[in-house]
Amino acid sequence: MVTVVDCANLLKDYSSTDFLADRGETAGEGDSRTLVDLLVEQIEFADVVILNKISTATPEQRDAARKIITGLNPDAKLIEADFGQVELKEILGTGRFDFARAETHPLWYKELHGFKDHIPETEEYGIRSFVYRAKKPFDPMKFQAFIDRSWPGVVRAKGFFWLATRPHHVGEISQAGALVRTGKMGLWWTSVPREQWPQDPGFLNMMKPYLDPVWGDRRQEIVFIGADPMDEAKIRAELDACLIDSPVFVPDLWRNLPDPFASWDRKAA
């Protein structure tokens, strides 16, 4: 799959909060995606990215575009071009595309699933990444305040979290550019009756590392990808400050904490 990116405008578009409808570029009625959603989908899934209009971009624009693309998808072959002029052998009949492998292209996926090896391309463009992990729940007001702050240098963040007020549900967070989205992802396995768990040995072995005697599989696990001036130590400290300081699982004490997040069907929470 080949994606063509406008080098001169990528940084501006990646920082946009426009919906596709604002640009007249929806895929049809009901398409509520933003411009950033479309950019991220196309870049993360591609196996070849053509960085077009390279000569019309400033050095700063070229550097930012390379960092964004590499931060989203280090596996993609990056080709720089003008007027879309690329040798056909670079994009036709390459045999590069594989649907299953494409789902593992994003750097956040590699980090979150623990199989990111040494990737020279990310080092070449100054891209760094880390995973924030914690067992304790977030105080909703403090975590919302963290989300509302700017994260200088962060290109992409993706992962899941749990709020003290919602002990049964997995929260999902996704950031790209200027947009941060959160929502309900599903139930923690700890909140599902054991008799309803899959019983195959593979699943049970997979779950063992995540089953804490206090918290079950509830946890914070968020990938951050970026370049200077991304400050890993500061982000970790700010997230640590969002955690509820409790050594035990006592959801009844947390249920009435102020919670600014949109409803996740609170009756079930």
Score class of each variant (00 low, 15 high):
residue 24 G to W: 08
residue 32 S to E: 15
residue 40 V to Y: 01
residue 44 E to K: 03
residue 51 L to W: 01
residue 52 N to Y: 05
residue 54 I to Y: 15
residue 56 T to H: 14
residue 58 T to A: 10
residue 59 P to G: 06
residue 64 A to E: 05
residue 67 K to G: 03
residue 70 T to E: 08
residue 76 A to Y: 04
residue 81 A to H: 04
residue 82 D to F: 03
residue 82 D to G: 09
residue 86 V to L: 06
residue 93 G to N: 14
residue 94 T to P: 05
residue 96 R to A: 12
residue 97 F to R: 14
residue 97 F to P: 05
residue 100 A to H: 13
residue 100 A to T: 10
residue 113 H to F: 11
residue 115 F to K: 12
residue 118 H to T: 10
residue 128 R to G: 06
residue 136 K to P: 04
residue 138 F to N: 01
residue 138 F to D: 00
residue 140 P to Y: 02
residue 140 P to V: 02
residue 143 F to K: 00
residue 145 A to Q: 14
residue 146 F to D: 02
residue 146 F to S: 01
residue 148 D to H: 13
residue 149 R to L: 07
residue 151 W to G: 02
residue 151 W to L: 15
residue 154 V to T: 05
residue 154 V to K: 01
residue 155 V to Y: 06
residue 155 V to N: 08
residue 156 R to Q: 07
residue 158 K to L: 03
residue 164 A to G: 03
residue 164 A to N: 02
residue 167 P to Q: 09
residue 169 H to Q: 15
residue 169 H to I: 07
residue 177 G to D: 01
residue 178 A to T: 08
residue 179 L to N: 10
residue 183 G to D: 06
residue 201 P to K: 15
residue 203 F to V: 10
residue 205 N to E: 14
residue 205 N to M: 10
residue 206 M to P: 00
residue 213 P to V: 04
residue 214 V to T: 15
residue 215 W to G: 00
residue 218 R to Y: 00
residue 219 R to Q: 15
residue 222 I to E: 00
residue 227 A to V: 10
residue 235 I to S: 00
residue 246 S to V: 03
residue 246 S to T: 10
residue 252 D to R: 14
residue 253 L to I: 03
residue 255 R to D: 08
residue 255 R to M: 10
residue 255 R to C: 04
residue 256 N to H: 14
residue 258 P to D: 12
residue 261 F to G: 04
residue 262 A to I: 07
residue 263 S to Y: 08
residue 265 D to V: 06
residue 266 R to Y: 09
residue 268 A to Y: 11
residue 268 A to Q: 15
